[in-house]
Design a protein around this nucleic acid. Sequence first.
DNA 1: TTTGTTGTGTAATGATATAACATATGCAAA
DNA 2: TTTGCATATGTTATATCATTACACAACAAA
Lengths: 134, 134
Amino acid sequence: MTMNQETKGGLTKNQSLVFETLSSARAPLSAYTILDKLRDRGFRAPLQVYRALDKLMEGGAVHRLESLNAFVACNHPDCQMRKTIAFTICDTCGQVEEINDEVLSQHLETIAKRNEFQPQKLTVELRGLCMDCR
Amino acid sequence: MTMNQETKGGLTKNQSLVFETLSSARAPLSAYTILDKLRDRGFRAPLQVYRALDKLMEGGAVHRLESLNAFVACNHPDCQMRKTIAFTICDTCGQVEEINDEVLSQHLETIAKRNEFQPQKLTVELRGLCMDCR
DNA sequence: TTTGTTGTGTAATGATATAACATATGCAAA
DNA sequence: TTTGCATATGTTATATCATTACACAACAAA
């Protein structure tokens, strides 16, 4: 077993750093905010962040929030839970909750069929106020 | 009845130009694409476009597609139809369809309640292939 | 050891959006 | 009428988000 560029989590050094940064944040972070937080650790360019984010999103460890142009760590412990289809996003405190709702999922599928549309990616984001902030 | 800065549609000159540009496009346009198309008509800066878009979106005449960072004209004739809550977006041809689905709407409301979340804005976008392109 | 794949480093550029400030226009209150 | 307000506009500069292009390094498979 060689020590290669991957850590035990299956992540490379840069990927781990980006993931840890997102995991310890209490709100979504932009790629440039992540970059700034990782300058001490040797990050110098946006691309280092975007590349790590791409891989993390591929594996489902990180989600992109389209309406914020920002990123969050998946909040499911082992990230085997890939069913997140929706997010609630508090505009005051930034808190993000992942929604896994089979009925919603089915209904979106139904809507697609009805429109003869073949969906490849879903974006469902509810922006507003969380329990604590309203 | 004085001739003021508003046209009969209740839109100002810039707003009308931006709306007409979007209406005659067969796919969503970015703000900068709109700007380029309107240079002949005197537009010189992004802000002219963004300001018009803001007003048009306020009135429901234009929708923003978060997953594209682009804009479409509302496809409901008189724009009294404000119930659009979802979009299908073809990644090949750019065609956008607006979805008005009461069941979906209700269900999103239910999900919000269940999470004690007070939604202020919804983003539901299905990216994929339209009937003609698949 | 050669070759292919993946990850990384760096600089430059492209694409999207807003801040700040100045001027103009229509309208209403005094 | 004139003053004042709200809204629209014009312009420059800047902030923010994301990718292209190219070079090199680490590892794995042949």
